[in-house]
Design a protein around this nucleic acid. Structure first.
Lengths: 200, 200
DNA sequence: ACGTTAACCGCACTCAGTGCAGATTTGCAA
DNA sequence: TTGCAAATCTGCACTGAGTGCGGTTAACGT
């Protein structure tokens, strides 16, 4: 890894951290890109060579989780069916916990509820991730699943969990509390996937 | 309905039609709000008292379809279970065919694929609609389904169909052809919901 | 006919995001 | 070490979305 790359990664990280600070303090819309750039000590114009839009500051490394899911599919056991593999793959998605990613996750959740453009971006990322996972799932079960079947199955799983989670999060009093959120996720997965687990 | 309201409705319609023309000719991003407003003979500033954002021009009356689905739930037969009701409700969603709504639907599909902000908005609208439908479904089966269960079920249906449809539409050569799109929708519904129909 | 209310619309403004061009830094090879 | 090419940084000028304000016009109820 060259000096250039390391420096670039450091600046990128600085941008995310600076943004997290400012977003926590002022909210998303009230924070301008110029402020974030200034806090990370780069020019406003340069910001756009790191992130294409303000929303992306809330979703750095969103592909990491997709990769984890893809890896989980690749490492399936010989006796696993599509549903089991998919279930384990989606389980890996909800797992990371730096300090920063914890803060970011809380902010993300907050702004997904408050700011339409953030919600839109989040849904798009989820949708794309879903598609990618379905592609690999289809590839992993060539005889059993085609592209359409894999997509439908993945969409059903993700759609069920997401919708259940949305309802559960409406009743959480403090969305900043990781424990409550974590609990809601588990309940959502459990409730959403019960039909598959009991009936097959 | 007062004169005021009629005039307002006419202006709104004129905006949608003007936008459809311009979007068809120039694309979404290359068309400015000022152009749309001028074509509908209102001031640029006034546009924003009809639509809060440019994307909304592609989704006028998005609540009509939700209402249709809600009505379908309300008009369920005595022997229907949640899955049947939901299935019929979702079926009503894909049904309308003015001249204008046909043109608009084609444009919508095109820009959902081309323009990120439009895709984001579309997903948001779908998500909200889904939530609303789930609410009514839960209310229709008080003993059988709670809010979370209804949301999960609706999310699974909609997620499965949407994901399948996405894959099918990737292979359509002319997305402007209503017949091909219609066919893809039917295949998507069929393939996505097969698990429910066969196993229960 | 008249006062009230809502719609219209121009003006000035903020901010996101882009294109361009010049300066600076880094990587690599002679 | 030196020199050159490529990538990066950054200011400047610009477009376009969207908002707040204030004055004007048009429709409504009485």
């Amino acid at each position: 890894m060259s000096l250039r790359d390391r420096k670039r990664a450091r600046t990128r990280q600085a941008l995310v951290e600076a943004a997290a600070d400012l977003f926590e303090r002022q909210g998303f819309e009230a924070t301008t890109i110029a402020e974030v750039a200034a806090a990370a000590e780069i020019g406003t114009r340069t910001f756009f060579s790191y992130f294409p839009a303000k929303e992306e500051l809330l979703f750095p490394e969103s592909d990491l989780r997709v990769h984890a899911a893809v890896r989980a599919i690749a490492e399936r056991g010989p006796g696993d069916g599509p549903a089991e593999v998919l279930l384990r793959a989606l389980h890996t998605v909800g797992e990371d916990s730096d300090d920063l990613s914890g803060r970011l996750a809380a902010l993300r959740l907050r702004f997904i509820r408050e700011v339409p453009s953030v919600r839109g971006r989040a849904l798009q990322i989820q949708f794309d991730a879903q598609r990618e996972i379905a592609r690999h799932l289809a590839a992993a079960f060539p005889g059993e699943l085609d592209e359409v079947g894999a997509a439908a199955m993945t969409g059903a799983f993700v759609g069920a969990v997401t919708a259940a989670l949305q309802v559960l999060l409406e009743d959480v009093d403090d969305p900043g509390d990781p424990a409550q959120v974590q609990a809601a996720v588990e309940v959502a997965v459990d409730r959403a996937l019960k039909p598959w687990l009991t009936h097959r």
